Amino acid sequence: MKKLLLFPLIAVATLLSGCANDHIIHMRDGSTKVVEGKPEIDKATGMVIYTDESGRQQAVNQADIKEMSSL
């Protein structure tokens, strides 16, 4: 019985952990960017560095961001 419950729990946890890394950045101009992984903030420059959906590294000024949230 325990084995029957263990497999679905592992499957759900695996699916949820795969989605937990993506984030959404809502810009002040109304645009939205879906990014892979958690964006990093470069405190020296005030830029937020992220990897876009195409796998390219991008940077945007932190002042241009309205909100960041995880998916």
Score class of each variant (00 low, 15 high):
I65W: 03
L16A: 11
G46H: 07
L9F: 14
I65D: 00
V35P: 07
N61L: 13
A20E: 05
D64V: 00
L16Y: 02
K66H: 12
S54I: 04
S17N: 09
A59K: 11
I25N: 04
N21C: 02
L5W: 10
V48P: 01
M1Q: 13
D52I: 02
Q58D: 11
I10R: 03
A59H: 06
T45I: 03
C19Q: 02
I24C: 01
A20P: 05
Y50W: 06
S54N: 13
N21P: 05
R56I: 04
N61M: 07
D52V: 00
V60E: 08
S70N: 09
I65F: 03
R28F: 02
E36L: 12
A13G: 11
E36S: 11
A13P: 10
K38T: 12
S69P: 00
L9I: 13
M68T: 12
K2Q: 12
Q57G: 14
T45M: 06
A13C: 14
V35L: 00
I10Q: 02
G55S: 10
T14G: 02
I41Q: 06
R28V: 15
V34S: 08
A20M: 05
N61P: 14
N61W: 07
A11G: 06
L71E: 01
I25E: 02
A11R: 01
L6T: 13
K38Q: 10
K66D: 15
Q57S: 14
L16I: 10
G30L: 08
I41E: 10
H26T: 13
S70L: 01
K3R: 12
V12M: 12
S69W: 01
M27W: 06
D52N: 14
I65A: 00
K66G: 13
M27Y: 06
E40Q: 15
M68D: 04
T51F: 02
A20F: 04
Q62Y: 14
V34M: 04
Q62L: 15
Q62V: 15
L16K: 04
M47S: 11
I24L: 08
D42C: 08
N61R: 06
L15D: 04
I65H: 03
A59T: 11
G46F: 05
R56P: 05
S31F: 03
N21L: 09
S69R: 11
I24W: 00
I49N: 07
L9E: 01
D42R: 14
S70E: 08
T14N: 05
P8H: 02
K66F: 15
Q62N: 13
L71R: 07
R56G: 11
K38E: 07
M1Y: 09
G30V: 08
T32W: 05
E67L: 12
M47C: 07
S69N: 06
S54L: 10
L4F: 11
M47W: 07
D42F: 09
M68K: 00
I24Y: 05
A63K: 13
G30E: 04
R28M: 13
G46V: 13
I24R: 02
G55E: 10
E53P: 09
S54W: 00
I41M: 14
K38I: 06
V34K: 07
H23E: 03
G37V: 08
E67W: 09
K3A: 13
V48H: 02
G55C: 15
K38H: 10
M1A: 14
I25H: 04
A63V: 13
D29K: 09
E40T: 12
L4C: 08
P39I: 03
D22H: 04
Q62C: 12
I41T: 12
D29G: 11
H26F: 15
P8D: 12
G37Y: 03
V12N: 04
V34Q: 03
I25D: 00
